[in-house]
Amino acid sequence: MRRPLLFLLGLALGGCAWEPGQGFAVVEPTVRAAYEPLSDRAASDGYQRLSSDYQVRVDSASMRVSTIELISSSSGSGGAFNPANPPPGYTLCHGGHCHREDGALIPYEQVAAEMGGGGGTSAVVTLPVGEPLNLLAPETRAVDCEPECALPETQVSQGRWGVELLRIEGTVRDGRVPPRIPGERRFRLDLTPTGSGDEPVAVLGGEVDLPSDRSHPPRAKLDLNLVLTAGLFDPVDWSTLKQDPGGVVDFNDSDPANAKARKALVERLARFSPEAEVTRGER
Rank of each mutant, 00 (worst) to 15 (best):
R2I: 11
L8K: 08
L11M: 14
A12V: 15
G14Q: 12
C16T: 11
A17W: 14
P20T: 10
G21R: 13
A25W: 02
V27S: 08
E28S: 11
P29K: 11
T30Y: 03
Y35S: 01
Y35P: 00
E36R: 14
S39F: 00
A42N: 05
A43L: 09
D45F: 05
Y47R: 05
Y47Q: 04
Y47N: 03
R49F: 00
S51F: 00
S51L: 13
D53R: 13
V56G: 05
D59K: 07
S60P: 00
A61N: 01
V65R: 03
I68W: 01
I68L: 13
L70Q: 03
S72G: 13
S73N: 07
S75R: 08
S75D: 09
S77M: 05
P83K: 10
A84H: 05
N85H: 06
N85G: 01
P88R: 15
T91A: 14
L92W: 01
G95C: 09
G95R: 09
G96D: 08
H97I: 07
R100S: 13
E101A: 13
D102I: 06
A104L: 14
A104H: 11
P107R: 13
Y108G: 07
Q110N: 12
V111I: 13
A112C: 08
A112D: 06
E114C: 06
M115D: 03
G119K: 09
T121G: 11
S122M: 10
S122V: 06
T126G: 03
V129G: 02
E131K: 12
P132F: 04
E139H: 08
T140P: 00
R141V: 14
A142M: 08
V143E: 07
C145N: 08
A150H: 12
L151T: 02
E153N: 13
E153F: 09
T154H: 02
Q155I: 09
G159C: 12
R160E: 11
G162R: 12
V163E: 04
R167A: 07
D174Q: 05
P178R: 11
P178L: 11
P179N: 11
I181E: 03
G183L: 08
E184A: 09
R188W: 00
L189S: 05
T192L: 14
S196A: 14
D198S: 14
E199H: 02
V201R: 09
A202I: 04
A202V: 04
V203L: 13
V208Y: 01
L210T: 04
S212M: 07
H216K: 15
P218S: 15
R219F: 01
A220P: 00
N225T: 12
L226H: 03
A230E: 11
D234F: 00
P235Q: 10
S239D: 11
L241A: 05
D244P: 00
G246F: 03
G246Q: 15
V248R: 14
F251C: 06
N252V: 04
D255L: 05
P256I: 13
N258I: 06
N258F: 06
A259N: 07
K260W: 00
L269I: 06
A270N: 04
E275Y: 00
T279E: 15
E282L: 08
